[in-house]
């Protein structure tokens, strides 16, 4: 990584702390234009304010989450032991990574995944 890249990463990391409004608007615009993001409902805002975790696609994939973009919208799937894929929501996807991380890198069994879905 060269000096420019290093400084840029540092500035963006500082932005995660400082949340300068002009730059944050630009970042949000980029995210919004790519994901077809809609305006959040009050329930979703409350959830986000409570501190919902955000992980990168590669982190989620390590935990066994399959990520696809359908019409610009991010969708999540998990694969059961028999090879069948099931659709899951973002909470379950994040929960899969949390469990993967806590267990030191072990993916969920089918039973654990079903429990997680039931709880979400």
């Amino acid at each position: 990584m060269d000096n420019t890249e290093r400084k840029l990463k540092k500035l963006f990391d500082y932005q995660k702390f400082e949340k300068e409004p002009g730059l944050q608007e630009l970042v949000d615009d980029v995210h919004g234009s790519l994901s077809g993001m809609r305006k959040l409902t009050d329930d979703e805002l409350e959830y986000a304010a409570a501190g919902a975790a955000r992980f990168s696609d590669s982190q989620l994939e390590k935990a066994g989450v399959n990520i696809k973009y359908v019409n610009g919208k991010k969708t999540y799937q998990a694969t059961l032991s028999g090879g069948k894929s099931i659709n899951i929501n973002e909470n379950v996807a994040m929960g899969m990574y949390d469990c993967y991380n806590l267990s030191g890198g072990t993916k969920l069994t089918d039973a654990q995944l079903k429990d997680l879905i039931a709880q979400s």
Partner: peptide, 26 residues
């Protein structure tokens, strides 16, 4: 500097800006 960074990013094309934000912010 963050404000100036935003101004510099606005001068990029939409695709350049998206790649820079996704790579260095996300």
């Amino acid at each position: 500097t963050l404000s100036e960074l935003a101004a510099a990013l606005r001068k990029l094309t939409d695709e350049e800006r998206a790649v820079i934000v996704l790579h260095y912010y996300d």
